[in-house]
């Protein structure tokens, strides 16, 4: 092997890489939070009495879950401008990731809601709570405990998925790595460093989420 590894060339660029990590985290966090809200709305729509609301929610979930994120990003960033709706790369990335997380969150939340015994809703209604109150106190809170592990996994997945938005040159870790690559011609080293940064981020956050789970959700249920 004649290739000489040289990670030293990357050293002066660490502030740029750190900034890129923060952008990646910011994008993942905002999109997951927004996706969670979309997910709740979708679940409410799926349980509503109106047939067309249920159909819209189901169509949204199935379309997002059965097409690649890359195509969704391209559709929003390159496709929608032809009908007069255009975004900056960052907004398109945020929108695509939020919609993506929304559909997956909806399925996770639905699983949590299904885990709550029906009698509990009926008891809530019998106590004179309004449907929204039933949803908030009787469905959402206990369901949150059930779905917490999957939901925190969703954040780590979103963190890894953000790398795909580099393809519309939204600024984050992967696109920064590509930019450095075109300056330094050290592809392999740069992508090793970027990969390790992603690995560090996902490991740290998995660890933090496990800690939160142990502190807040470890009370006994029965």
């Amino acid at each position: 092997m004649s290739y000489k590894f040289d990670f030293g060339v990357l050293l002066p660029y660490w502030p740029q890489l750190l900034h890129a990590c923060l952008l990646t985290l910011w994008l993942a966090a905002t999109a997951v939070i927004c996706g969670f809200i979309i997910g709740i709305i979708t679940v409410v729509a799926r349980r509503s009495g109106l047939m067309f609301l249920r159909a819209i929610a189901l169509t949204y979930i199935e379309i997002i879950r059965n097409t690649p994120f890359l195509v969704q990003v391209f559709f929003i960033f390159f496709g929608l401008p032809t009908v007069g709706i255009s975004f900056t790369p960052w907004t398109a990335a945020f929108l695509a990731l939020s919609l993506n997380c929304g559909a997956f969150s909806a399925e996770i939340i639905r699983g949590g809601v299904d885990a709550i015994p029906r009698g509990q809703f009926e008891a809530g209604a019998a106590l004179g709570l309004k449907p929204l109150q039933v949803f908030r106190y009787i469905i959402l809170k206990p369901a949150l405990r059930v779905i917490y592990p999957a939901l925190s996994g969703q954040f780590v997945l979103a963190l890894l998925t953000t790398s795909i938005v580099s393809s519309i040159s939204a600024e984050e870790l992967t696109s920064t790595a590509q930019l450095l690559d075109s300056d330094l011609f050290r592809s392999f080293e740069i992508y090793i460093v970027a990969t390790l940064l992603y690995f560090a981020l996902s490991t740290i956050f998995s660890f933090i989420f496990k800690g939160i789970d142990r502190v807040f959700f470890s009370y006994p249920i029965k």
Partner: peptide, 22 residues
Amino acid sequence: DFFQGTPMLMQLFLVYYGLPVF
């Protein structure tokens, strides 16, 4: 853990740019 904790795109990049290096 490595494959579940890194983006698939990075894994493809590493193979694509890494194989010629070796």
